[in-house]
Computed example of a mutant assay.
Amino acid sequence: MNQNMQPQIELNNGVKIPQLGLGVWKSTIEDAANAVHAALRNGYVLIDTAKQYGNEAGVGKGIQAAIKEDGINRDDIFLTTKIFNGDQGDYDHVRQAFEGQLKALQTDHVDLLLEHWPVDGKYNETWRAMEAILKDGQARAIGVSNFNNERLTDLMDHGTIIPAVNQIEFNPHIHQQKIVDFDRSHGIKLEAWSPLGSGTLLKDPVVNKIAEAHNKSAAQVELRWGLQHGMIELAKTIHEQRMKENMEIFDFELSADEMKEIDELDQEKHSLWYHDFQWNGNPDGIGDYVATPDKW
Rank of each mutant, 00 (worst) to 15 (best):
N2L: 12
Q3W: 06
Q3A: 13
P7A: 14
Q8T: 14
I9D: 05
N12R: 02
N13I: 05
N13R: 10
K16R: 15
I17Y: 05
L20M: 14
L22F: 01
G23M: 10
A32N: 02
A33C: 08
V36A: 02
H37Y: 15
H37M: 05
G43P: 01
Y44E: 04
D48M: 12
D48Q: 09
D48K: 08
K51H: 14
Y53V: 12
N55I: 02
G58A: 07
K61N: 10
K61T: 12
G62T: 06
Q64D: 11
A65H: 01
I67K: 10
K68D: 15
D70N: 13
G71T: 11
I72W: 02
D76G: 02
D76H: 05
F78T: 08
T81K: 03
I83E: 02
F84V: 03
F84W: 15
G86S: 06
D87F: 07
D90A: 10
D92H: 14
H93R: 15
R95H: 11
Q96W: 05
Q96V: 00
Q106F: 04
L113P: 05
E115I: 15
E115M: 15
W117E: 06
V119L: 15
E125A: 15
T126M: 13
W127S: 10
W127E: 11
R128T: 12
A129R: 06
E131A: 08
A132E: 14
I133W: 01
A139R: 02
A139H: 06
G143T: 06
V144K: 04
N146T: 02
F147Q: 01
F147G: 03
E150R: 09
R151C: 00
D154I: 12
M156S: 00
T160Y: 04
T160C: 00
I161K: 06
N171S: 07
N171D: 09
K178F: 07
I179Q: 03
V180K: 06
D181Y: 08
D183H: 06
G187F: 09
W193D: 09
S194R: 07
P195K: 09
G197M: 01
S198K: 13
G199V: 09
T200D: 04
D204C: 05
V207T: 09
V207L: 10
N208G: 05
N208E: 14
N208I: 04
I210W: 11
I210L: 12
A211G: 04
A211H: 06
E212F: 04
E212H: 08
H214V: 01
S217D: 05
A218W: 00
A219H: 01
A219W: 00
A219E: 03
R224T: 11
G230K: 12
I232T: 12
K236R: 15
I238M: 10
I238S: 14
E245R: 05
M247D: 06
F250E: 03
L254G: 04
S255Q: 07
A256P: 09
A256I: 13
E258S: 11
L265S: 05
L265Y: 01
D266L: 01
S271K: 03
L272A: 13
W273C: 00
H275G: 00
D276Q: 13
Q278D: 02
W279F: 14
N280Y: 09
G281F: 10
T292H: 07
P293M: 00
K295G: 03
W296G: 07
